[in-house]
Amino acid sequence: MFDLLLNISLLLLSLSTLAYIYRVVKGPSTPDRVIALDAIGINLIGITAIISIILRSNSFLEIILLLGILAFIGTVAFSKFLEKGVVIERERDS
């Protein structure tokens, strides 16, 4: 019963990831694609958590925090590139 629920939620998460992939491919503008990639990262966190429950293992808990940090830094880098044209500035103009 519990495993069935876990499999159903895994299926729903993969369907939602597929919808995000549709947005990445089809998205009219670049910010759409960036937001979709960020949300795919968050979905991957959920998939990792459910799979670690299914496998009855807590060796994947580090991966969850790691994916969160990497998704955040990647999205910040993308949005800074979109806003200013550079990712790392040499000197702030202030």
Binding site: E62, L66, I69, L70, F72, I73, K80, I88, E91
Partner: peptide, 27 residues
């Protein structure tokens, strides 16, 4: 447990990269 020098060093560099993104290279 999972972890070690390699991934620890990568996450430390990720933190410094986040600092570089929010501020600038000179700071």
């Amino acid at each position: 447990s999972p972890g070690g020098g390699f991934v620890g060093g990568l996450i430390t560099s990720a933190g410094i990269v986040l600092l570089l993104l929010a501020f600038d290279l000179k700071t």
